[in-house]
């Protein structure tokens, strides 16, 4: 049995937030499936709202505060990532994009990711496919085939028995499967690690 970490990022702005509610349900479904497969799971929720000022400050100054550094390390060092945003103007909200703009472009390579979104109408649902999925594809993450969108009617229709519940369970199982088949994460990349010798950088053979 290995110990797995799931980072659960929610870009919801209101409190309580339906985006956070969806994120928590996706996290629980993934955890349950991993536990069923004999893994132990630690969930690491990240409410981007709490870091909104730090995110903007990092964009402007070029470096993260200590608190934001920890959050970025949590996200880039996890075994799996659940990323959920409200849909604004047909795409992820600005906070969600600004946060992921601060993630190094190599930090999520081959990382299993489950994407989710909430919106005021089901007509926003394809934003998952035309906005979130391409962004994570650019980052070379492995996005599960099922992405989960929750519209107001999904919540009012009785979550436990509705179609939303089925999609959450399926998506969680897909993410768990991707996490399960990989070796445990070794944590965030070390920004101070050198990958070549200085002689190689100089273009010389050992002399």
């Amino acid at each position: 049995m290995s110990r797995r970490t799931l980072a659960v990022v929610s870009a919801g702005l209101s409190q309580p937030s339906s985006t956070r509610l969806l994120a928590d349900q996706l996290a629980a479904a993934t955890r349950d499936e991993l536990v069923r497969r004999g893994e132990s799971v630690k969930l690491r929720p990240v409410e981007l709202r709490e870091h909104a000022h730090d995110v903007v400050n990092h964009l402007l100054t070029g470096f993260p505060s200590a608190a934001l550094r920890e959050v970025l390390d949590t996200v880039t060092g996890a075994d799996g990532l659940i990323a959920v945003t409200p849909i604004f103007n047909a795409s992820y909200n600005g906070l969600f994009k600004s946060f992921f703009d601060l993630v190094d472009s190599a930090a999520l390579v081959d990382r299993p990711v489950l994407i989710g979104a909430t919106g005021g109408t089901a007509r926003h649902s394809l934003a998952l496919e035309h906005a979130l999925r391409p962004m994570f594809a650019y980052l070379h993450a492995v996005v599960t085939p099922t992405a989960v969108f929750a519209a107001p009617e999904d919540w009012s229709g009785g979550v436990a028995d509705g179609a939303l519940r089925a999609r959450i369970t399926r998506a969680g199982a897909e993410l768990a499967d991707q996490v399960h088949r990989r070796s445990p994460s070794t944590g965030p990349a070390d920004p101070f690690a050198l990958t070549t010798t200085f002689e190689e950088m100089l273009g010389r053979q050992d002399s």
Binding site: N57, L60, S65, A66
Partner: peptide
């Protein structure tokens, strides 16, 4: 120019 309109003076001096 470099850090204006970002963190507060207090945050920046702490960090």
């Amino acid at each position: 120019p470099v850090y204006g309109h970002g963190p507060s003076l207090e945050e920046f001096t702490a960090q």
